[in-house]
Design a protein around this nucleic acid. Structure first.
Length: 730
DNA sequence: AGCACGCCGACT
DNA sequence: GTCGGCGTGCTC
């Protein structure tokens, strides 16, 4: 009987296509194959195989590709991801199937050279140097040999042609050296860390009471204040996993994948870990994939896409900084890597550890309700104290006119730098000034696409929209009334703070760090390392400095405007602000010297600010969860965005609420208010948001799909799609 | 993702 | 009169 294979193709297709399996080829689920699609050949994965009497006139599978098949759990993850995010299955598959691109496919053999034991026909000084190095008979790479001898590559090539050196094939360099779980550690764990690590490892083993064979707390929230040594605790879990011969994955936000972190890993395991992020390309990427699939690579540290690596025997997933919004993928398939990690853990039958100093509300709630285990490290490692956080009430301590640093802040910075320590001034606003207006006519510079103000970037001499990226040259005269010298910057950005700091501290080294740092990510990375090394007195930075890097010389953190973001209208504004401020103030005093933080605010009594000042995170979580309950908001909800095309904007506005409101939700789904006004123009489409409260077990995707099919669409509309903003309710 | 088909604006 | 813009639909 002929075999039919259902092949899922990594394109925006929601169904697998059926192909005939040619005689002589046996296929299993998960096999990677090549199939004809229209005029071309394309790679796909066998999603199902069946025997069928009539093969019909299906096109045949072209052949199997000799790479590791997709494991059952990984295939189920793809199915799950597609269903959960409303994405076509094929698009979800594409995430797991980054096959070797053509450049990487041609596996170039590494070539080494060694002495052939015979003298060159025509000796020269350069040749002698090379042969002297090679005289030990060892094998070296060509360029390594040339470098060691201090000559150019062509000398080595000449000697190979001459026969004095012979080339030998080298085994490919291992992608990653095996981490040693029992590498002798320099600093012993504290008692608290040790207890936490034991508790976590205990959760690896299934208890008799768990039906699925995963122990209680198969997902564990590891919560520890900044500097408590969370990392060392989960390293113990990783070590135990490796001891048991299984693989471990540590996910981090890309920005946090720093040399500092890799060194800490090396201090614990003797080697740096295999890393996976957007910068790992070509051959290395493929070798790492293959190593992961063969089980040769035991630990991977990677950004969110590492979640889709083809592990054969995954024993642990750690999600570091689990509250980070960078785990959300917002283009293509919308997913939240932390949530998908929980799902993959469930499918693989392995524990998942979510680590953070400032957990997301949803993880906190999941822990409180007993869905997740909860391990808390309340104190800093090594007896270090948390920084003292003091408010500066801006209503009382006003800065000079046109200035933004209040007198107590200036005094504190002055003292800090005088003592040879480092100060960080934190302001979450890029550019020079968030608003520019003409003082002659009152014209405010606004984005032509969005409803936002244009931000002046003085270094770039431009006005920039931070929403859509629209940029125009800063005009000499007002575009409205033509007046010269009347353009007035309103409010501060980091560039403007840098100007102020430079005037106050002319002999100090000042650096501005923000995501639009000139010279790109690589330069920025270098600058962060330099700051960490203490090569700077005053750092002025946006939220970028709150994440990832430790600055051991930093003893003062000055928050210039703690109130930014508290009024943004985002249902998660309070949570975000608290997390950000907690993280950034926690940067102070992580080295030898104690640290402190000063917080400029106009509302010291605001719950978020008050909780921050009291140093009790617990208070914030209680208040925020309570506030959400009181307001009928879900402690964790999901935001669904309705997207309509730009041409439909008017129509959408006319129909606004009617089309964006879910009229009669079934039990278990609650819609919180009507749609907001269009938020932004994103690539020709206006975006609306709906906040939908749901509980576990409700198939919200299925519901939204139905709702979409039923709901009235604006006349003339061609396409309305639902787009789910991933937020956990797992 | 490619690739074809198709329907309206500015050019030799 | 055509070249070409991208919107839409299809690929077992």
């Amino acid at each position: 009987m002929p075999q039919i294979a259902d092949i899922l193709i990594p394109l925006a297709l929601d169904t697998a296509y059926s192909y005939a399996v040619p005689a002589g080829l046996t296929l299993d689920e998960g096999d990677v194959v090549q199939v004809p699609l229209g005029p071309r050949e394309i790679v796909g994965v066998v999603w199902g195989v069946e025997e069928r009497a009539s093969g019909g006139n299906l096109r045949p599978v072209s052949g199997r590709i000799e790479v590791a098949p997709l494991s059952e759990p990984l295939r189920r993850l793809v199915d799950w991801l597609a269903r959960y995010t409303l994405a076509p299955k094929g698009s979800a598959l594409a995430m797991a199937l980054r096959l070797p691109d053509e450049t990487a496919r041609t596996e170039t053999m590494r070539v080494g050279v060694r002495s052939a034991g015979k003298p060159p026909s025509r000796p020269t000084a350069a040749r002698d140097k090379v042969l002297a190095v090679a005289a030990d008979g060892g094998v070296r790479g060509k360029s390594a040999l040339a470098k060691e001898a201090g000559v150019s590559l062509s000398v080595v090539d000449g000697l190979i042609d001459d026969g004095a050196l012979e080339s030998v094939a080298l085994l490919p360099e291992p992608v990653a050296l095996p981490p040693d779980p029992d590498f002798p550690r320099e600093t012993p764990l504290s008692e608290a860390q040790d207890a936490a690590a034991r508790k976590m490892i205990a959760a690896f083993d299934p208890t008799p009471s768990s039906a699925e064979g995963r122990g209680f707390g198969a997902t564990i929230l590891l919560e520890g204040v900044t500097g408590s040594g969370k990392t060392e605790v989960y390293f113990e879990a990783v070590a135990e996993c490796v001891r048991r011969g299984r693989q471990a994955l540590v996910l981090m936000p890309e920005i946090a994948l720093t040399a500092q972190f890799l060194d800490r890993f090396a201090a614990r395991f003797g080697v740096r870990p295999a890393t996976w992020h957007s910068g790992v390309g070509g051959r290395r990427r493929e070798r790492l994939r293959a190593g992961v699939a063969s089980g040769e690579v035991s630990v991977v540290v990677g950004a969110r896409s590492a979640l889709f690596l083809p592990f054969t025997d995954l024993g642990l997933i750690v999600v570091d900084e689990e509250h980070e919004t960078a785990y959300k993928q917002e283009d293509g398939v919308h997913y939240h890597a932390r949530d998908m990690a929980v799902v993959r853990g469930r499918l693989e039958g392995c524990p998942v550890v979510l680590a953070s100093a400032t957990p997301s509300i949803e993880s906190r709630v999941n822990a409180q309700r007993g869905r997740y285990g909860h391990i808390v490290l309340p104190e800093r490692f090594g007896g270090r104290r948390l920084p003292d956080i003091t408010a500066i009430d801006m209503r009382l301590d006003k800065p000079e006119r046109g200035r933004f640093l209040s007198p107590p802040m200036v005094a504190a910075v002055k003292k800090t730098v005088a003592d040879g320590e480092q100060a960080l001034l934190f302001l979450n606003r890029r550019g020079y000034a968030p608003l520019t207006l003409c003082s002659a006519c009152g014209h405010r510079y606004q984005c032509r696409n969005c409803s936002t103000w244009l931000v002046e970037h003085r270094f770039r001499k431009a006005l920039v929209c931070h929403h859509c990226g629209y940029t125009e040259r800063k005009p000499e005269a007002c575009v409205e009334c033509g007046a010269f010298d009347h353009l007035t910057p309103c409010g501060p950005g980091v560039e403007r703070i840098a100007e102020e700091a430079a005037a106050l501290f002319p002999d100090k080294r000042i650096i501005v760090l923000s995501s639009d740092f000139p010279g790109g990510t690589e330069r920025l990375r270098q600058e962060l390392e330099a700051v960490a090394a203490g090569e700077c007195d005053i750092v002025i930075g946006t939220q970028l400095v709150a994440k990832g890097h430790n600055f051991p010389h930093l003893t003062l953190v000055g928050v210039l405007d703690a109130d930014i973001g508290l009024t943004s209208g985002d249902p998660r504004a309070a949570e975000r602000t608290f997390q950000l401020l907690q993280q950034v103030t926690g940067r102070a005093g992580r080295g030898e010297r104690p640290g402190r933080a000063l917080v400029q605010t106009y509302q010291p009594d605001h719950p978020v600010i008050a909780a921050l000042l009291s140093g009790e995170a617990e208070r914030f979580y209680e208040e925020e969860i309570g506030a959400r309950e009181a307001a009928g908001l879900p402690p964790f909800g999901r935001l669904a965005a309705l997207i309509v095309s730009a041409a439909e904007r008017e129509m959408a506005e006319a129909h606004g609420q009617a089309m964006a409101r879910i009229a009669d939700p079934p039990a278990g789904i609650m819609v919180l208010g009507p749609a907001e006004a269009p938020l932004a123009l994103v690539r020709g489409r206006y975006r609306f948001r709906l906040l939908v409260k749901t509980d576990r077990g409700i198939d919200i995707q299925g519901y939204l799909r139905d709702w979409l099919a039923r709901s009235p669409k604006p006349r003339g509309s061609t396409k309305v799609t639902i787009d789910v903003d991933p937020q956990s309710f797992l």
